[in-house]
Computed example of a mutant assay.
Amino acid sequence: MSQAEASLQGLSCLADYAQRASELLPAATWAYVNAGAADGITQRRNAAAFEQRMLWPRVLRRITEGNTELELFGKRYAHPIFIAPTAFHALAHADAERATAIAAAALQAVYVVSTQASVSLEDVAAAAPSPRWFQLYWQADKDVNLALLRRAEAAGYEAIVMTVDAPIQGNRNAEQRSGFSLPASIKPVNLLPYADKLQTPGVLEAGQSLFQHPLVTQMANWDDVAWLVKQTTLPVLVKGILHPADAQLAVQAGAAGVIVSNHGGRVLDSVPATLEVLPLVVAAVGPHVPVLVDGGIQRGTDVLKALALGAKAVLIGRPVLHGLAVAGATGVAHILHLLRTELESSMVLSGVGSLEDIDSSLLWQGSNT
């Protein structure tokens, strides 16, 4: 047995990886990776929403040539399990985002690379030929946003994901109690070339209103989304949508798709679970605008439930970091393999052979309580 295989012993689901990662990572790093905002209400609610939804399978259906393929923005993808943008993979493994890219390529998964990656977006692209999207955190200087966009285009990224739900950091008490700080060796390298243009906001002083802080006064708006769309031929998705009205505004601004997300419960606590609002957003934008979703996905049955409520694909964040912490690229690949295998078995047991066969009739319509 190889060392990589040995590291996977006893790991049969995503919860196993979370437990093992919690034992391997320093306590402060674990708090950063896993903490939700404030009391963790939204983080727990994300997971609970999947538990409360029940599948309603059909039996004795003939399934021939089943597959999990989907088409988005004119490109064909092998399955609907994507890697969400998460920052600083070097906290979990020395190979950082390069390892994540290698795993994504091996499992044919779309990898959405974060602005705050610990490896440059060009180095991630060079690590493996996986389908890649680039996630953009809006910067107050438009020239910086344009420079990042042009770099992503040149490196072969296939879409731009503009995250809009975290203009300021959430109140993550568990992380604060742990005393977490980013090691000096780990930096947001994609932003370093523009350090002279990016003013580092100072600490909020006692008695100062947050509304006076540069992070608030320079926040992006819908005009900025429309501007970004006009700068590129790549599809632009808006990530961080919870309200149907905002989904409609995103489409009006030219977004090619939206991602229903509450940032994994890491920013504003006490907001609904993403699964709860997903069908409302799908209805608001109509059948021709792809809606993706993240938050709380732990099982292939969770993926199936999200697809049944109208999502075209799902994204996973924390589980990727757990896999990375446990076994590097091998761990991330195994995480993706587990989820895809669970999705396929759930589809077979529910009587569906392709994503096109999945709709709300697959969900139990009775009381979920």
Rank of each mutant, 00 (worst) to 15 (best):
N171Q: 09
G300K: 12
P235C: 07
Y111A: 10
Y32T: 07
L278P: 00
R172G: 03
V277L: 07
A308V: 12
R76V: 14
L315H: 11
L24S: 12
V112M: 11
F82M: 12
A147V: 08
K187V: 14
A206P: 13
I316D: 09
P85Y: 05
L280D: 13
V225E: 14
D196L: 01
V303M: 08
A284N: 07
G74R: 15
N145Q: 04
A308F: 04
E175D: 09
K75R: 14
A184F: 06
H337M: 09
G353Y: 08
S12V: 12
L362R: 05
K239I: 00
I297R: 08
V236Q: 03
R44A: 15
L315D: 04
E276N: 13
V161Y: 02
L136R: 00
L292Y: 04
L234V: 08
G317N: 12
G254Q: 07
H93D: 13
R76M: 01
A78K: 07
D359H: 09
R266G: 05
E344D: 02
V326Y: 08
T29E: 00
Q298M: 14
L304G: 04
A250T: 06
L91D: 01
T274M: 03
T29F: 09
A283C: 02
R150D: 04
G74S: 02
D95N: 12
P235F: 15
I63M: 11
A147E: 10
L343H: 04
F50A: 12
A308Q: 03
L292P: 12
